[in-house]
Design a protein around this nucleic acid. Structure first.
Lengths: 166, 166
DNA sequence: GTGAGGTACCTCACCGCTAAGGCATTGCTA
DNA sequence: TAGCAATGCCTTAGCGGTGAGGTACCTCAC
């Protein structure tokens, strides 16, 4: 039972016997797992004509509180991307007729983004497939250990400043 | 004690009460944590005039078995990137005098990549800082729980086909 | 009311990666 | 040993993101 990171750690142990490289055991795996999982999720998105960035926008709108109209700034924070990235994602989604941009009525600088009927239908169709893919990827761990894992990741996130907006 | 993903899960629970979105609790956190950690590591790399891709190449060469000469294909697999990405990384590193490319003596198609003295010195200088950053990022979990976390990530990796070459 | 600083969104140049494909060489198989 | 698939590396077009900066608008102290 050994993954690629075990091999890497062995190499370091052979080359730098004194060095404590144990953090690489966590962060190296985090990185590799992220890549593999992203690739897996991408296949599901593609099957629905989407990519991760587009799905993220649509799903954020779908789960938002009524009336489901968000500012680009909120989408930016939810997706952890820059404002430029949000602008471009919205450009693409708007061009496909999946979202609309409306001037904010109470703030002349602002914009409100909303799902169109088509956008809503698409994300609602993709969502169960997406969840199934996520579940499949995690299935080797039982539900209990998935929760344990989520708990540890949450601790790390909080220590790095990823707080809830609630 | 709640991170951004808790907020997201609450939103889903409010909007789709029947839906089991628990996989998002793991994969959403994996994704956000990856982003935050990468940003943190990038600061250390930058302080040494490097980025993650360049460091990855240099560190892979450093930890490789003597005589520390690897083929681009091996670097490609170690870094989980395409051959094009490796070619470009090597172009940049070679232009800076940090690695050399030599034709493989026994395979006319092949190339051997090697650290220069300067490249070796740079990665040896960056390595302890990098490890310190990784350790700092993980420090909220004690060593024991770090190992636990690494174990769960390894199980996931193995289930997705990330096997050791040993 | 006004000016300064903050905020919201967009624009654009640049960057690194992917995906597809090309060329040379090697290895397998009949 | 000839033919053909596989391999190793490179090339290139295109894509999505960042970071810096611009414009318009809002807020607030005075």
């Amino acid at each position: 039972m050994a993954d690629h990171v075990d091999f890497v750690l062995e190499q370091w142990a052979a080359r730098r016997p004194g060095l404590d490289v144990s953090p690489m055991g966590v962060i190296g795996r985090l990185s590799r797992l992220h890549r593999l999982v992203e690739a897996e999720l991408a296949r599901t998105f593609k099957a629905h004509g989407l990519d991760a960035g587009s799905f993220n926008i649509l799903a954020t709108l779908l789960r938002s509180a009524p009336p489901h109209r968000l500012a680009p700034t909120e989408l930016m924070r939810a997706g952890m991307v820059t404002s430029g990235a949000v602008t471009q994602r919205l450009d693409r989604l708007e061009a496909r007729g999946l979202v609309t941009r409306t001037p904010d009525e109470t703030d002349g600088r602002g914009v409100r983004v909303e799902l169109t009927g088509e956008g809503r239908a698409l994300v609602e169709k993709a969502l169960p497939d997406h969840l199934a893919t996520e579940q499949r990827v995690l299935s080797v761990l039982g539900r209990e250990r998935q929760d344990e894992l989520a708990g540890m990741l949450r601790e790390l996130l909080e220590s790095l400043g990823d707080r809830s907006e609630g």
